[in-house]
Design a protein around this nucleic acid. Structure first.
Lengths: 229, 229
DNA sequence: CAGTGGTCTAGACCACGGT
DNA sequence: CCGTGGTCTAGACCACTGT
């Protein structure tokens, strides 16, 4: 291996970090760099593509490659199956089904799911436990037209969360994070104080055939989401 | 272009989605696939590598390539410069420096920053405004040993957030999200009710030379973070 | 040891898009 | 138009690791 693309990659990282290549500046073409480094152009391409994917370079045919001014920083969180998240903490997982029935869904849920007003969906509330303590309260609406099988399931044995992950792979979705106060009912379920601040996740997922489910997760304090940059 | 890697890629996506290749199953080797599709092995490699990067395949030398059972879903959020985030909403950005002084930092902050107890850091509080309304309250500790230049800045003109992004590029960091209640002082600054639930971001960033800054952002309700899956 | 993925090379053609 | 990045190919060698 004469010149690994990884060595070339880190050399380019150095040039960007140490401003050999100024922010906004046009850098030499692939051919020139290949000549300079004495390697094949494809190898340079691989290194530059990696940097472009990470957002440090902007590449355009004919225009050439520029160093991006303010590389956009991104934070990535994994969306765990709740049972696995609990077990990874070293706690025992538990799960309690609180409610389960067909209901006309409220307007805002139907809007998120792009469905007609008045449609009946499967509604369920469930509590996920870590070592017997409340961990997450889940409120979910399921489109039974897309996943009819869920009607025949004993959701007190398998959580909807887990069953859907395994049986209704989604192709896309929306996710948002916010904070909300615990009202009386929620505080009772999560065993926290009324008015406590809770981290709230809302998620809508769909497949090619249509919207699958909309879910709202309320995380018992002092839950936090962590990631590295 | 006989066979584009993207066509091959989407054919492989299809095979995974439609369970031609079962979850957990070993798929044919690169050479076999290249033969089957009548293209070069490198082209197959490119398509498979893409899928492995996205977490749908698990590749090991000699062992071969397997379809991953539970593809780990990820959510990615961009970390915006607050001014730009406000302006993208179509609002006018404003910024008010509330406090700025050298202080011995509290123990928990110093632990996050991996510094000795008793160290003095630059502390500052600032309020970011959108159309004159409070948007984010920022509490920040800055390691002046790493970025001494910040001492000479008029932080009421340029926000520390923005200056640091442009002048102290970081190589890594920690980020966490949670919820917390607004206490009296915070509620006054953010013009929200006492006890309101706030989304809270905590971030620590460092470069090769050491920890740069630790910051805590309190977002005025009804702020939410959005992303697509 | 041997099979599989990982990568490099040289040469080629193509697509985009700035001038 | 034509320079630049994007990609394909065929062939080769290497690195890892299961058996």
């Amino acid at each position: 291996m004469a010149h690994s693309w990884q060595k070339i990659h880190s050399e380019f990282v150095r040039r960007i970090r140490e401003r050999d290549w100024q922010p906004g500046e046009l850098i030499p073409s692939e051919s020139d760099l290949a000549l300079e480094l004495g390697c094949a152009r494809v190898t340079v391409n691989r290194a530059l593509r990696e940097l472009a994917d990470k957002g440090f370079l902007d590449r355009k045919r004919k225009a050439g490659t520029r160093v991006v001014l303010n590389p956009e920083r991104k934070a990535t969180f994994v969306i765990p199956v709740i049972r696995l998240e609990v077990e990874e903490k070293g706690a025992r997982y538990g799960h309690r089904l609180l409610q389960r029935e067909m209901q006309p869904a409220p307007a805002d849920v139907l809007r998120c799911m792009a469905m007609a007003i008045g449609t009946e969906l499967l509604f369920m509330r469930a509590l996920h436990l870590a070592d017997e303590s409340p961990f997450v309260l889940e409120e979910r609406w399921v489109n039974t037209a897309i996943v009819p099988d869920i009607m025949n399931l004993d959701l007190s044995r398998i959580s909807a969360n887990e069953w859907l992950v395994n049986n209704a792979p989604f192709s896309g979705g929306d996710l948002s994070l916010g904070a909300c106060k615990a009202d009386g009912a929620v505080a009772r379920d999560l065993a926290c104080a009324v008015e406590d601040a809770l981290l709230e996740t809302r998620r809508t997922t769909w497949s090619e055939s249509g919207v699958i489910t909309a879910v709202r997760l309320l995380h018992a304090p002092p839950y936090r989401l962590y990631t590295e940059l």
